[in-house]
Nucleic acid binder design. Structure first.
Length: 215
DNA sequence: ACCCAGGGTCATA
DNA sequence: TATGACCATGGG
C-alpha cells in the first residue's frame, strides 16, 4: 500500500528535487524556519539572513537577537525561531561542525539533534534526511492526514509509530525517502486539504472526502 | 473576515 | 501522559 501510493504520486507529480537549498547548513536553517510555516515565507527569511551576511553558523551566533528576529520576520514566530537558530548554531559549532557530525551513527545523531532546543522529531528528521543523507523517513501532518483518509492509520497515530510504518515498508532507502516525503507535501498542499473539497485526487478515483466523513 | 502553512515548548491537571 | 496556550507572518 505504502509503495503503491508512492508510485501513484510519483507518476502524478514527477520529480520534486528536494531539498531546495544551496548547501547543507542552509538545509538545517530552513528546517527550523519552516516549522508550521509555508516555504515561500521561509525563502524570504533565508534571503533576509543572506543580505545580513548571517546565513552561516558564526553569522547567526554573533547576530544580536533582535536583529536576527528582524531578518527572519517573514517566516513567522520570529522571536522563538531566532532563539532556536541560535541554540542550534551554538550546538552545531560546539559539536565541531559537519566534519565531526558526519562521523556519528544515525541513531546517535538523531538523539543529539532532539536534545537541541527547538528541534523536535520532524525537524530532526528533515535534517537527518536532507542534510546528512541518513535513511530516516520524515513524517508530517500531511503524512498523517493522507494516510488516515486512505484508511491506513488512525488519525491520531503518533510520530514514531507512523515513521516506523514507513521505514519498515520501504526499507532503508535515502533517495526514496527523500522523494516520497516531498511528494506527500506536494499532494497535501495542493490536493489533500484539511477542509475538504478534494478534487483531482490521484490516490482514489473519486475522492469523495467531505466534512461528514471520518477523518 | 477566516483558514492554512513542510512544529515545538511549556504550564497545567 | 495528555490536552491547551502560545508563538506570528503572508497567501488564498
Amino acid at each position: 500500500m505504502i509503495r503503491k501510493v508512492y508510485q501513484q504520486l510519483a507518476k502524478a507529480y514527477g520529480p520534486q528535487n528536494w531539498w531546495p537549498a544551496e548547501d547543507r547548513f542552509e538545509v538545517m536553517v530552513g528546517a527550523i524556519l519552516t516549522q508550521n510555516t509555508n516555504w515561500t515565507n521561509v525563502e524570504r527569511a533565508l534571503d533576509g539572513l543572506r543580505q545580513a551576511h548571517c546565513l552561516s553558523p558564526e553569522g547567526i551566533r554573533l547576530c544580536p537577537d533582535d536583529q536576527l528576529a528582524l531578518c527572519i520576520r517573514p517566516s513567522g514566530y520570529f522571536n522563538v525561531k531566532a532563539k532556536r537558530l541560535k541554540a542550534f548554531c551554538s550546538w552545531f559549532l560546539a559539536e565541531g561542525g559537519l566534519e565531526v557530525l558526519d562521523t556519528y551513527e544515525t541513531i546517535q545523531l538523531r538523539q543529539k539533534l532532539l536534545s537541541v532546543y527547538g528541534i523536535g522529531p520532524e525537524t530532526a528528521d528533515d535534517i537527518l534526511l536532507y542534510a546528512f543523507d541518513r535513511p530516516v523517513f520524515v513524517v508530517d501532518a500531511y503524512t498523517r492526514r493522507i494516510f488516515s483518509r486512505l484508511g491506513q492509520v488512525e488519525a491520531d497515530i503518533g510520530y514514531e509509530p507512523l515513521r516506523a510504518l514507513f521505514e519498515q515498508a520501504l526499507g532503508e532507502n535515502v533517495s526514496l525517502f527523500n522523494e516520497y516525503h516531498a511528494l506527500i507535501v506536494r499532494h497535501g498542499r495542493e490536493v489533500c486539504r484539511p477542509k475538504p473539497l478534494c478534487t483531482k485526487c490521484v490516490l482514489r478515483r473519486n475522492c469523495d472526502y467531505d466534512a461528514g466523513e471520518q477523518d
